[in-house]
């Protein structure tokens, strides 16, 4: 190989290695932050209904704080190379989506859209091609949300909140109808979507138990 060519190639490879190192560091940060939010949100299972709003409020700063890290990653990624590196942080972002959408559900009882979730994680429209939230990761986050809600349905009843399972049931059924619209490949998303059916079944069981025991008094 021509020495100039050799230098060019070695330089490019070095730059890629260095970039990967830098991204890795930021992703470590992102991971720590989302893990800590997930840890806090885990308390919903033992928190009575009226203490949920302050609990969610206590997590909000953490969510806002994500922006520093997503911005840092955005700044590292060369134009158009989003898909080259995204595997490195997909997992963390899915967890972050989970946190944001769970907080939204706990606050308003509604589904946070992809656009709102992006915004909540500090991702800007004009970043696309360098840092964005792909549908796939948003959908993964939603499935994690359903996993958690099926657990919440059970624990809410233990804590004496008999309305929650019914609210969750409606929310999750709509979401399931949405997921049913998709044509999935035989990949992780498909497998997790299959598992979602079991969460729905579990929630239905709780609703069944609760309604038959006439513990819930619907409006």
């Amino acid at each position: 190989m021509d020495p100039q060519d050799l230098e060019f190639i070695n330089d490019s490879l070095d730059r890629d290695v260095e970039l990967r190192e830098k991204i890795k560091e930021e992703v470590g940060e992102l991971d720590r932050k989302t893990r800590s939010m997930v840890g806090l949100l885990n308390k919903i299972h033992s928190t009575p209904q009226d203490k949920i709003p302050p609990l969610v409020d206590s997590v909000r700063p953490g969510l806002q704080d994500l922006q520093t890290t997503t911005t840092a990653i955005y700044e590292l990624i060369p134009p158009d190379q989003f898909w080259r590196w995204k595997e490195m942080w997909s997992n963390s972002m899915r967890n972050a989506v989970f946190c944001a959408t769970l907080m939204e559900y706990l606050t308003s009882g509604t589904l946070m859209s992809l656009a709102s979730a992006s915004a909540a994680l500090g991702i800007r429209e004009e970043w696309k091609n360098r840092f964005t939230l792909p549908a796939e990761d948003y959908l993964h986050g939603l499935i994690t949300l359903v996993n958690e809600l099926s657990r919440l349905a059970v624990n809410a009843v233990t804590l004496g909140n008999y309305e929650e399972p019914i609210r969750i049931s409606k929310f999750v059924k709509d979401l399931f109808a949405g997921f049913s619209m998709l044509n999935l490949k035989n990949d992780t998303l498909r497998r997790r979507f299959d598992s979602l059916k079991y969460d729905i079944k579990k929630i239905e069981e709780v609703v069944y138990d609760v309604s038959l025991r006439k513990l819930a008094h619907p409006a």
């Binding site: 409606k170 609703v207 309604s211 038959l212 619907p218």
Partner: peptide, 8 residues
């Protein structure tokens, strides 16, 4: 019964 209790 279940349907009634939810649909509310």
């Amino acid at each position: 019964i279940v349907a009634r209790s939810i649909s509310g």
